[in-house]
Design a protein around this nucleic acid. Structure first.
Lengths: 160, 160
DNA sequence: GCGTTCACTGGGCAACCTGCCCAGTGGAAC
DNA sequence: GTTCCACTGGGCAGGTTGCCCAGTGAACGC
C-alpha cells in the first residue's frame, strides 16, 4: 500500500493526458519504457488504478440537475432499499452512513420538475421512512484525485 | 444533446473494457471502423465523454475512510471558503447546495482518527459556521453511469 | 565480506492499431 | 430531382504495444 513519487508522476501524467501511451510517458519521465510498464501493471494489480473507463458527463446526456438525498430507513430494511435503489438509473451512487440519515445518494434528473419524478421513484418504496434532498447549485471542486495522489506520493519516500 | 443506441453501446463497451481500441469495437458492434471513430469524436466534442482519466481508489492509496460533510457558511464568505477547501487534498469534491447546509463536500482520511485532523483543517477557516459530518460505512452502489447511459440511449430513438 | 534478489536499463522484434485518406452507397430533407 | 450526410470498405505509413533478453547497481540476509 502506498505509492512513491514516480507512481505519483505516472498517475498525474495519465490524468492530464489519458491517451498518452507507455512509450511517451517513459520519454517524459526520463525512465525506461519497461519501468513505466511495470509500474502501471503494479498500480493496477494493487488496485490503486481501478481502470480507465470513460468519464461521462450526465449533463451532456440530458441530466443537468444533480441532488443529494439523505434517506432514513426502517430498521432491518436496509438490504431491500439498497436493491431497490440499484434499479434506479438516476441513482449514481449510494452510501450507508453514520449520522442523522442512514443513507446518502447522489441523484441526477432532466430538470427540477423531473427531479420530483426521480425522488418519487426513490422514496416510493416501503422501507424508506423519510428523505431530505439538497439540490446542487454549483460544483466548485469537481471530483478530483490528483492532489491526494500527490499527497500520498510525498508522504511515502518508499520504493513500493 | 442526447445519444442513440449505438453511442450507448460504444460507451458501454468502453466502460467494460477501457483498453479495447477503435478497431476491436467496430468488430464487436458490427459497424465500420470509421463510424466508431466518428462517433467517439462526436461524443468527446459534445462533452458526453469528458475523458479517460485513470480511476484511482483512495483506499488503495492509504485513505480508506470516506465522509460527507455538510457545511454552513457565513454570508458572503462563499468564495473564500471554496478557495480554502480547494487547497485541502483530502477534499475530493465540493458542491454548493440548497437545503439545510450551504455546501456538501466529500472527504477521505487515513483513519477515523485522521478524519478528525482533516475536519479540523476543513473547518479551521473563518467563514465556516458549522459542519455536520457523516462517515461512510458501506458503498452499496459505487459511482456509476452505465444505467443512465442506457436510459438516455433508450429515450432517444434519434440518430444524433 | 559475499551471494541473492529485485528494480531498472537499453536494446531488439513482430504484430497490431491509429490516424488519415478515398470513392461509393443509401436514406432523408429540401 | 438534387443535395447533404452518415456509413461502408478499402488502403497506407508510422507509431506503439507486448514480449523478450543481458547487464547493472543497490539493498538485504547470511
Amino acid at each position: 500500500m502506498g505509492i512513491d513519487r514516480l507512481d505519483g508522476r505516472i498517475i498525474g501524467l495519465l490524468a492530464r493526458e489519458p491517451r498518452i501511451g507507455v512509450l511517451e510517458m517513459s520519454r517524459r519521465l526520463g525512465v525506461a519504457r519497461g519501468t513505466v510498464q511495470a509500474r502501471l501493471d503494479r498500480l493496477q494489480s494493487n488496485g490503486v488504478i481501478r481502470g480507465f473507463g470513460p468519464e461521462v458527463d450526465p449533463a451532456a446526456l440530458g441530466y443537468p440537475v444533480t441532488a443529494f438525498a439523505t434517506l432514513e430507513i426502517r430498521q432491518g430494511q436496509g438490504a431491500d432499499v439498497r436493491a431497490h435503489l440499484a434499479t434506479v438509473p438516476e441513482v449514481l451512487e449510494l452510501h450507508t452512513t453514520t449520522g442523522t440519515g442512514d443513507m446518502l445518494c447522489r441523484l441526477v434528473a432532466r430538470s427540477n420538475a423531473d427531479l420530483q419524478r426521480v425522488i418519487d421513484r426513490v422514496v416510493g418504496f416501503d422501507g424508506i421512512v423519510r428523505a431530505a434532498t439538497a439540490i446542487v447549485m454549483e460544483n466548485p471542486v469537481p471530483l478530483r484525485i490528483i492532489p491526494l495522489v500527490e499527497q500520498a506520493a510525498q508522504d511515502s519516500g518508499r520504493r513500493d
